[in-house]
Design a binder for these strands. Structure first.
Lengths: 339, 339
DNA sequence: TTGTAGGCGTTATCAC
DNA sequence: GTGATAACGCCTACAA
């Protein structure tokens, strides 16, 4: 039962506002773009007219005139889209969207089907977009880099190779892993193992490096390493391998929370207690961290912030403002009950 | 070391194509929009010119001329964005994006900050968008419905209230829950409990209803119900309550896989075996299903398909093609090792 | 400070 | 079938 007052009211145009306010279109335009040089009184009446008509500038017309799309697009590599449910990805997108909401840029998304990359390419280069964001978390895959000469572009995560020229935002995985491990060594654990992520992905590599530095500093063994693939199941298997070695283990730093959840099942399945027998520290602070018992001590990512930062960097790039090429987001260790 | 052939080549325009092909802009336009009436030979040479220049139509100009945005926007209610990592949400978006990739519509996303809904509103009504998609999975919240008079709009999930007029796509939760439970009763289980989702969300309500019908048909007790909130922890607690009742239980249908994972810890923590002592069936077929041991028998959602269907419905609506108001997607039971 | 006028790249309506 | 030409809604010198 919607109240219909004579069909859909036509979308108001700048011209209609001008008519209503009794000024020229140029003036209205100035008001809309808050140009400094416009009589305050006039500006007021124009604003009133705008409100009265509920006028919104037409994006297409504006883009056409300014030769600016006022849009940035998020490229989702098809490979990523398979793990689209990756909480990291989701949060990054959320951060991006949140930042852009307060700007004049619109966010649009394309899934770059590998079948026809040239379609994506020409869309991007066709002047329909002012900048590009690429989320390639784990893989470190920075294809598309070749476009960065033609279009501002910001990546999430350190590139696996190259990337000497690409702009990107990442969390300081190594530093975070180091602190997490220090938490273990400082509290007196002497047999600190690690379950690392894949060694062909920056996060896997860097977190392992951080662990290594910490155990070395503490004068502990550097051999207690097993590698998983960031899945819960792989974490369980890796933990079993660690425990099967016969060497004592009283703590483990795990490359992400999902694997940590797997490690929990392995540890507790053998009748060992957390943290009494084995302390566990994870990485990510995702939903697993608080849903397992005991609650997991883990490294918190500011992922949403990372997304915001990506968007901010891109906008700066677009508007020619000075910007850091690489931004490293700080992390923090969240102490819970597993250490 | 990018090969720079004299700065960024200016974006080719329709006019340039016309010049190169030696025809008028009108003709090029016709070719681009493959109008029927154009000499095949001419069309060929025009196409060649397009390829040679790597011409892409300017979206803004096109929109302006056609008075069509060629864009649909996905509204993410801020409440949803908090559970942005919801795998359901992620997959729906993926489906939407996949469908739109093959159309002339662009997908853009806005997070409707509740702080300034009128901004979102005027953006949508300002002629910048041809249609709107709203994902409100769990909540069943169909605010924005009021816009459906002015703009084509499609929702994901059955609305909690009203929705007599809204277009939406959903999975048949009740039917799926019924089949899942039938699997249990048909295989001889006589004490079939359920852990239901929140009773103020359509999926929670409908899945419970499906379970109820099945146990009733089988002549079993209808009282073995505990309610959770779709989280792993709540599933564990609910399972414990069920087990604490003292009544025998040899099977349980759980409202989603996350809660099922929780139920696993409760069951196995008490030394009971799955499926020998208690059979478990979940719902969602998300990553939990295969990462737990034994692998979980669960209901598979065609979530990506649901997203595609939403987009398809919206496009039909926009283009005035006939369309069903509500589409129910079929589900399937994936048999694994937990029954 | 304000208005006039031309142009942004396409589509659409005409004649031809 | 093809080509001028006028919109589409807005911005921006330039002139007043």
């Amino acid at each position: 039962m919607t109240q219909d007052t004579g069909g859909p009211r036509p979308v108001p145009t700048l011209e209609m506002v001008a008519a209503l306010a009794g000024v020229s279109r140029a003036t209205v335009s100035r008001v809309v773009n808050d140009s400094p040089s416009v009589d305050p009184e006039l500006a007021q009446s124009v604003k009133k007219a705008i409100l009265a008509l509920d006028y919104t500038p037409n994006r297409a017309a504006r883009s056409l005139a300014k030769r600016r799309a006022n849009a940035v697009t998020l490229i989702v590599p098809e490979s990523t889209s398979k793990v689209f449910a990756d909480p990291f990805f989701a949060s990054v997108v959320q951060g991006i969207a949140l930042f852009l909401t307060d700007t004049e840029y619109t966010l649009n998304m394309v899934i770059s089907s590998e079948s026809k990359p040239e379609k994506t390419r020409s869309f991007l280069l066709g002047g329909n977009v002012d900048g590009v964001l690429v989320v390639s978390h784990h893989s470190g895959d920075h294809s598309w880099t070749h476009l960065s000469g033609s279009l501002p572009m910001v990546f999430a995560g350190r590139p696996l190779v190259g990337g000497r020229e690409s702009y990107y935002v990442e969390v300081d995985n190594e530093q975070a892993a180091y602190s997490a491990t220090r938490q273990l060594t400082d509290s007196g654990r002497r047999h600190v193992a690690t379950i690392a992520g894949p060694q062909d992905m920056p996060p896997g590599i860097d977190r392992l490096a951080g662990w290594r530095t910490a155990v070395r500093e503490a004068g502990l063994a550097e051999g207690l390493v097993e590698v998983g693939d960031f899945t819960l199941a792989s974490g369980a298997r890796a933990m079993h391998r660690l425990l099967d070695r016969g060497t004592p283990i009283d703590a483990v730093f795990v490359g992400n929370d999902q694997m940590a959840a797997g490690a929990y099942t392995a540890i507790q399945g053998r009748g060992l207690r957390i943290p009494e027998d084995v302390a566990v520290v994870g990485f990510d602070d995702d939903s697993f961290a608080t849903s397992v018992t005991p609650a997991l001590t883990t490294v918190h990512h500011p992922i949403i912030e990372l997304g915001k930062k990506m968007a901010e960097t891109l906008v700066n790039l677009i508007e020619g403002k000075p910007t850091e090429r690489v931004t490293r987001m700080p992390t923090s260790l969240v102490l819970r009950d597993s250490v």
